[in-house]
Nucleic acid binder design. Sequence first.
DNA 1: AACACTCTGGAATAGCGTTCCAGTGCCAGC
DNA 2: GCTGGCACTGGAACGCTATTCCAGAGTGTT
Lengths: 235, 235
Amino acid sequence: MATRARRPERREEPLSRERIVEAAIGILDAAGEGGLTFRALAERLATGPGAIYWHVSGKDELLNAATGAVIAGGMAAAAAGATPQEAIRALALGVFDAIDAHPWIGTQIARAPARSPMLRVFEHIGRQVQALGVPEAARFTAASALLNYILGVGGQNAANARGARPGTNRTAFLDATATAWAELDPEEYAFTRGVAGRLRDHDDRVEFLAGIDLILAGITGITGITGSASIADGR
Amino acid sequence: MATRARRPERREEPLSRERIVEAAIGILDAAGEGGLTFRALAERLATGPGAIYWHVSGKDELLNAATGAVIAGGMAAAAAGATPQEAIRALALGVFDAIDAHPWIGTQIARAPARSPMLRVFEHIGRQVQALGVPEAARFTAASALLNYILGVGGQNAANARGARPGTNRTAFLDATATAWAELDPEEYAFTRGVAGRLRDHDDRVEFLAGIDLILAGITGITGITGSASIADGR
DNA sequence: AACACTCTGGAATAGCGTTCCAGTGCCAGC
DNA sequence: GCTGGCACTGGAACGCTATTCCAGAGTGTT
């Protein structure tokens, strides 16, 4: 029976980088960004801070690993669509939902070391942009625009989720902001006041997808199907 | 001479919320997010932490005020354009440049309390969207898409700026990432590798504007000029 | 002249990320 | 079967942080 499948285990489940990241995600989800301390983490894992540092170099790496794990999960959840447009929508929704379920990611994605997980998203978007028939010169711009929009929405959505009290649900929050917007200065915030009502029966995911469609329309309208590739020549 | 223009001043320049925020921005620009401590701030203002707390409720409010001041400055710098498209471009560039000049804003914009300065940006974008002739039902979506894209680019750009060492200039950084991308796994990162070369002669501002134009094309293409308002009826 | 009131800044507190290190238990070589 | 090495542990300690507290200085009003 060869090499007795390695079962030393001085404890039921030995400490490992994977287990630490998993516990960190759990704490982040439950207590938010500020709740993740090495002390809390040590307590949850029934160990001391020193043991954690043996597996993980520091808090930055930990946050980065947690972000990567969640984003990767969100992308995996998105099943590929039939058309490139549908594939992009599914991919975007996967990332959107992942950020929505773990709002602490919102601030992480604007951090330097967190950019490697984003590269995977960029790659997948880029392939679908290519499949869309976008000429080579415009592909980078198109994929970047989509990714940046997704990250922008994710960040803002996460800020909203963190801003609302843990108890209140989404419709109550939207109602509160709609009311707040409606009470803004009529001169200074004429437009915002005007669209405040639209906030009440507002579905974040639908709105998000509408934005994606807007960008997709811009991409195919300018570069694709019609054949006129005005964006391809500079600016 | 009426009410002797209020010159008590027990020190040359009395402490004030404005002066504190100004000093905070100075520290943030010089030393980054981590460099802003109440100790450093107190030293720069030649006072103690207690005095600062009398004018400002805490670090969160301080960061929020600093963000607001910078964003407001960026918007003011953007002169209005002749057409709505040009006005949107100018406004977007103003915000872009403000974030670019103060990279620490990148993480701030994804924070809950920092959303009030963004409301002003949203308002101005919305007005131009309206001027563009977008039907009412689609205005919210259009303005949101633009704002989210701007914030997404800002966040990612700031992450890049913070990631690069303070000394290195932009072209050196782009060169480094282009090389890194070109060395990625050919199977897994086929698209990213393909566009790596495009990174070398890449102007962030031009690229940013190209994305704005893409979204504008989507907005006017779907809702405006042609008259077909497919986006107006749901999804 | 004395009060009230705004404003100051040094000292103190609790909690953070991180480091240090004495120790634990397993495995390889003898 | 012993023993030395080594991966791994976790409690204690360090320097730093945001924040609070408070004794008091300076100024306008009475």
